[in-house]
């Protein structure tokens, strides 16, 4: 319930309208819940991504949409263009305003089929809806072909596995424990340390009828954390250490090879 209330605050005006619907769905079936496990993803030296299990309960008649994302932020990217009409070069900078750092969607069915356009836009579900909420500016003030560059942006992010839409991936069970759902998400190692929000939407007749939210954190621990801290806070020492290790390693191996008779 606490998580539901948090969600409410974020959507201000929408909240009032939703309250009625939540009360409705809660009274007719069961409350929507979402839990993510683990709550903390630890980046150790051998980290190569993680498995996130998100599970909970929902009404049997509702479809589900699960969104993992960050708060929208502004990102500057270099763009390629033809320089002097001849060669391809990075010759401009585009600022993408209001894009999430990660955008992973999982659903029980096709988004277009279960939600109407207004709802897709309101909750920024699907790349088309997300694209409409994002503005792209050229730093030199040149006009921007929004659709072309947003498409390029999505392709880059999908290549890095930090954006993705997977429809029909949430599995559900109807049994003694009520109506439950579960999904295992492959969390990409490319996603940076930080806090990620998990939003679960219950959908019925084209509309969002209930929401639940939770979050999890990705952070560096142990050596990985200590090293990145040192690189930032004691950067000079860090640089000197890196050089000393390199020189010593180089000389040591040189000496070993000499002993081994590699040189005459």
């Amino acid at each position: 319930m606490k998580t539901i209330m948090n969600r409410m605050k974020q959507w201000g005006a929408v909240a009032a309208a939703l309250l009625g619907l939540i009360a409705f769905s809660a009274s007719t079936s069961q409350a929507l819940t979402a839990e993510v496990s683990p709550r903390e993803v630890e980046i150790t030296m051998s980290y190569h991504g993680a498995k996130l299990t998100i599970s909970g309960q929902s009404a049997a008649s509702d479809d589900l949409v699960l969104k993992i994302s960050t708060e929208p932020r502004d990102t500057a990217m270099k763009r390629y263009g033809k320089a002097a009409g001849l060669v391809w070069m990075k010759n401009g900078t585009l600022e993408f305003k209001g894009v999430p750092g990660v955008y992973l969607l999982n659903t029980t069915a096709d988004l277009q089929r279960i939600l109407d356009d207004a709802s897709l836009a309101e909750y920024r579900l699907g790349y088309e809806a997300l694209g409409k909420a994002v503005s792209i500016e050229d730093l030199k003030g040149e006009p921007v072909d929004h659709d072309k560059w947003f498409d390029q942006f999505i392709r880059l992010k999908e290549k890095e596995a930090i954006y993705g839409i997977k429809e029909g991936t949430i599995t559900r069970q109807h049994g003694e424990n009520g109506n439950t759902f579960k999904i295992v998400v492959d969390w990409p190692y490319q996603a940076q340390p930080g806090t990620y929000k998990v939003e679960l939407l219950a959908v019925n007749s084209g509309k969002v009828v209930d929401t639940a939210a939770t979050s999890f954190e990705v952070k560096r621990v142990g050596t990985a954390a200590a090293l990145s801290k040192m690189a930032l806070e004691q950067s000079l020492l860090y640089g000197i250490m890196a050089v000393i290790v390199a020189v010593v390693a180089g000389f040591a191996v040189g000496a070993i090879f000499k002993k081994g008779g590699g040189a005459h």
Binding site: S235, G239, A242, G250, A252, V253, G262
Partner: peptide, 29 residues
Amino acid sequence: VTILQAHQNHTVDFFLALLLLIGSVFGAQ
């Protein structure tokens, strides 16, 4: 260059360098 980059831009990844140099010191020999 290494010291300047580490100090001013924080762009030296020591673990990456370590992996590379394990190979390169032998390669150089």
